[in-house]
């Protein structure tokens, strides 16, 4: 019953979330008294997984160079079956959530998504996972022999181990693709909501798109991704892919700064699993203050530039 970790890449280097899923896989294997290996596609630095305790990684080079969930799932499933991996660990990124259900069917495995911790018990395996858009947790028992575990972003953390990691090239043949990729547009060089350590988010309290330079300047000093509430994207002040919350993107970051956002239940549901929440709002009664760790009651147009300026000085 050994553990296999699926590692994602970005421009052929390991994605940031590799550290957390590798750490999780290694800890799960220790708990289950077994070993943990990894599999990665087209990476130039797979050996760096040793840093998180992975001692062997399979490097697949004969596969589509862009992420292709169907083809990748087929290769990972074949590899897992051949080498008797019973537990496959993946992240909670958009790509991992694409791959995991397909992989689970191929392995006849249970899929347990949004897992926030190591299993509560090992016989039967039982996982704590986020449900009801972070309004609750479920304890899910695995009824199948194999499982695919989706680790919630920023839940388990990173454990440094500094092992030596051997890279084993894979010899599997590339499966045919079901979907032709026509094009891909992706921002480069700036943090995305899924990957960023810090997210700065703006709401209707910012009055209009022309004021977003305040959000962007603050995000810039923090190396943060920018986000917004639903009405802001509905009104076209910001593009849809910045919409966070229950019906938008989930945010599970270390620091979430909400500016001029009231904290409606649907907004909170999507951002609540962020570790530290800072709220800037001129209404002391705004519901967001009840869900925040730190709050500033004040006018965003005064507080935000001041915060940006002070942070610049702090970082200098």
């Amino acid at each position: 019953m050994s553990v296999l970790v699926f590692i994602e890449t970005e421009n052929n280097t390991l994605k940031r979330n590799a550290a957390e899923v590798a750490s999780y896989g290694v800890a799960l294997a220790t708990l289950l008294n077994t070993s943990c290996k990894a599999i990665v596609f087209h990476a130039t630095n797979p050996e760096t997984l040793g840093q998180f305790g992975i001692k062997e990684v399979t490097l697949v080079s004969d596969a589509p160079t862009h992420f292709d969930a169907h083809a990748y799932a087929e290769i990972v499933a074949e590899h897992a079956q051949k080498n008797e991996f019973s537990q496959v660990v993946v992240s909670s990124s958009a790509d991992a959530k694409y791959l995991a259900p397909i992989l689970a069917v191929k392995l006849q495995a249970a899929y347990v998504p949004n897992v926030v911790n190591l299993p509560q018990s090992t016989t039967p395996l039982s996982y704590k996972r986020a449900a009801f858009t972070n309004k609750a947790f479920a304890y899910s028992e695995v009824l199948a022999a194999n499982s695919v575990i989706g680790v919630s972003n920023n839940s388990f953390g990173v454990v440094e181990k500094n092992e030596r990691c051997a890279v084993v090239p894979s010899s599997s043949a590339s499966p045919s693709t079901k979907l032709e990729q026509l094009s891909i547009e992706k921002v480069t060089g700036i943090a995305t909501i899924a990957d960023a350590d810090v997210v700065v988010s703006g709401g209707r309290g910012l009055k209009g798109p022309e004021n977003w330079h305040l959000v962007e300047a603050l995000a810039d000093v923090l190396g943060a991704a920018t986000a917004c509430s639903k009405p802001v994207s509905d009104m076209g002040w910001r593009s849809h892919d910045e919409h966070v919350g229950q019906t938008g993107k989930p945010v599970s970051t270390n620091l979430y700064i909400a500016i001029g956002i009231s904290g409606a239940i649907q907004h909170l549901a999507g951002v609540n699993s962020s570790k530290v929440k800072v709220v800037i709002n001129n209404d002391p009664e705004a519901p967001f203050f009840k869900a925040a760790d730190y709050g500033v009651v004040g006018d965003a147009f005064e507080v935000v530039p001041k915060l940006t300026q002070k942070l610049k000085e702090f970082k200098a």
Partner: peptide, 22 residues
């Protein structure tokens, strides 16, 4: 089914917000 939700739990209540003067 391949999984069974055996129980549920609500998140621990949050400590009060620390307010910082503007």
């Amino acid at each position: 089914a391949k999984t069974k939700d055996v129980s549920f739990e609500k998140p621990a209540p949050k400590a009060a917000v620390k307010l910082i003067p503007a």
